[in-house]
């Protein structure tokens, strides 16, 4: 693409500048990568090495003790299972709701869509507040049930707009009219034509919703009391952030050992909990970028 660029030679200052740009990007990349590498390396080291600060880049005294400790922790396992269930249920619900709302909004002949667009955009401008929201959930009897995780955040305005923009540009009005001529109902058309045409956007929506649900902790913290219902992020918060040291009755050496292990486990826990998202990251990256572009820079 830039082959014909040699017609005009880069000046000396330009080459210096370009060198500076490369250096800058290298530094940015190192700053972003270092903490990630450090966490993974620490999680694969021995408890003593981590506590005494010997780990700084690569694993020291390679060991999987941290991971074994994570797998032994029944709270973490339960949280993991809950999170998978919440993420799956929430994603299905959110994608279905978003599609059945965004598709009618994308039809020009759908009377009332201007009003409906305003109706949803307004919720972006003004927020009722945490407490009134909490009172609604309470009134509906959802407190301390899985529904409190699945329903109150079931749709996002931003995602509706992405889906609507996509339907508008890839399901032409002519196609709708042709199918109506053949006696196809709106629902059949949605199911047999629109959905198969819209696989890419459904993937975008599903990934966005799934990552959001997997990573969220706040709703669970305010709506759930029963530990058996806690998602992984809330368990992580307990273990990684608020955890207090127990085990006062043990002898000093054992206590010391426990402390080191607990410290190491935190690193392994971070890796384990981020794993599902990191596995889908290569796919997700492409789709996320696509989704952001559909939604924002149009035309």
């Amino acid at each position: 693409m830039r082959k014909n660029k040699t017609l005009i030679r880069e000046s000396f200052t330009d080459r210096i500048f370009l060198g500076g740009v490369y250096a800058y990007l290298c530094i940015v990349m190192l700053i972003v990568l270092y903490p990630l590498i450090y966490i993974v390396s620490a999680s694969l080291s021995s408890p003593e090495a981590v506590t005494s600060g010997q780990v700084w880049l690569w694993p020291v005294d390679f060991s999987l003790e941290g991971y074994i400790e994570v797998l032994r922790n029944s709270d973490v396992i339960r949280g993991f299972r809950n999170s998978i269930l919440y993420t799956f249920g929430y994603t299905v619900l959110a994608v279905v709701l978003t599609v059945i709302f965004a598709y009618p909004l994308s039809r020009e002949s759908f009377y009332g869509r201007t009003f409906l667009m305003f109706f949803i955009l307004f919720t972006m401008l003004f927020y009722g507040g945490l407490i009134p929201e909490y009172l609604v959930v309470q009134k509906l009897g959802m407190l301390d049930t899985p529904w409190a995780i699945l329903i109150p955040k079931a749709m996002a305005v931003w995602q509706i707009i992405i889906a609507r923009t996509f339907f508008q540009s890839s399901v032409p009005e002519e196609l709708v009219e042709a199918s109506e001529m053949d006696g196809c109902s709106s629902l059949k058309f949605l199911w047999y034509v629109v959905i198969p045409l819209s696989k890419p956007i459904i993937a975008v929506l599903a990934l966005m919703y799934a990552v959001f649900q997997w990573n969220s902790y706040f709703d669970a913290m305010i709506f759930l009391k029963t530990e058996a219902l806690f998602p992984l992020q809330l368990e992580l918060r307990e273990l990684l952030i608020v955890q207090s040291d127990s085990g006062a009755n043990m002898d000093i050496a054992e206590q010391q050992r426990r402390k080191q292990l607990a410290n190491l486990m935190k690193y392994s826990l971070i890796v384990v909990s981020s794993l599902p998202v990191l596995i889908i990251y290569p796919f997700a990256q492409k789709y996320f970028v696509k989704g952001m572009l559909i939604g924002s820079v149009k035309g």
């Binding site: 990573n215 969220s216 902790y217 992580l236 952030i241 826990l269 990251y281």
Partner: peptide
């Protein structure tokens, strides 16, 4: 893609 809880940890 990293969660807030993990970042803070």
């Amino acid at each position: 893609f990293i969660s807030t809880v993990v970042i803070v940890s």
